[in-house]
Design a protein around this nucleic acid. Structure first.
Lengths: 120, 120
DNA sequence: TGCATTATTGGCAAATTTGCCAAGTATTCA
DNA sequence: TGAATACTTGGCAAATTTGCCAATAATGCA
């Protein structure tokens, strides 16, 4: 017998849960094309919601919600300036994630080209 | 007038799309508590599906699907060994993402403690 | 004060993700 | 060959995410 079948409540992920959920949540806040793009843009300096909105051409409410996800994850911070709200990266270390992802991507492409080249 | 309302097809995210979708997809493969955990475990060396399954206490089919997500993203590679399948990290650079996330987390906690301390 | 600009929130429908079960494949071993 | 082990795939239901449209709030300006 391997283990009892727990039929746990859906939300209740086993012991590794809380620690890993916290970390996964930060990544989840980056793991969307729009939010990844925002992180890239904000790496160059603060931007207001209206600027970001024009860049992606989505409804402003949608943009606002994406930014809320990033804010709740601790990725960005906001600051009121008159009628607008400026967003900026909470820590520059987010930028270090970019090259890591590039490397995974590059390696994956190399690997796929090998497979393509072989006669399998 | 700011811009026409495009009412685009749902999938069809504007110009920044393809480039960022590709990158976001890699992060998405890490942005789940179980898969984040697997990446941590695999950082210590190859593991078979059955080992990983026992660690998280989920159905083996569920574990298999999580690993398939990671494989398709180019995060891990698999290798048959008899009846079992060993998974290992495709590139060690994934590990560099861990400390970045820790830093975001630490900064976020610091910031929240400040707010807690102030009389706002 | 009234109006425009900027942003957030609530609500909803469509899309995606997640996890289980059942069924199928592949390999080892008796 | 037949049984056991290890894994994958299809299908489905529950949960979550995403994006739009109001409706609402906050600020600046005439």
């Amino acid at each position: 017998m391997k283990h009892e079948h727990v039929t746990a409540i859906r939300q209740d992920i086993p012991k590794f849960s809380s620690r890993h959920r916290l970390r996964a949540n930060i990544l989840k806040a980056l793991a969307h094309p729009v939010r990844w793009y925002f992180a890239e843009v904000l790496a160059h300096g603060p931007r207001c919601v209206c600027e970001l909105q024009q860049l992606v051409n989505l409804d402003m409410s949608t943009v606002s919600k994406h930014l809320a996800v990033m804010r709740q994850a601790g990725l960005v911070e906001d600051e009121k300036r008159g009628t607008q709200v400026l967003y900026h990266l909470a820590t520059p270390c987010v930028l270090k994630i970019f090259p890591c992802v590039e490397e995974v991507l590059a390696k994956d492409i190399r690997r796929k080209m090998e497979v393509f080249g072989s006669d399998e």
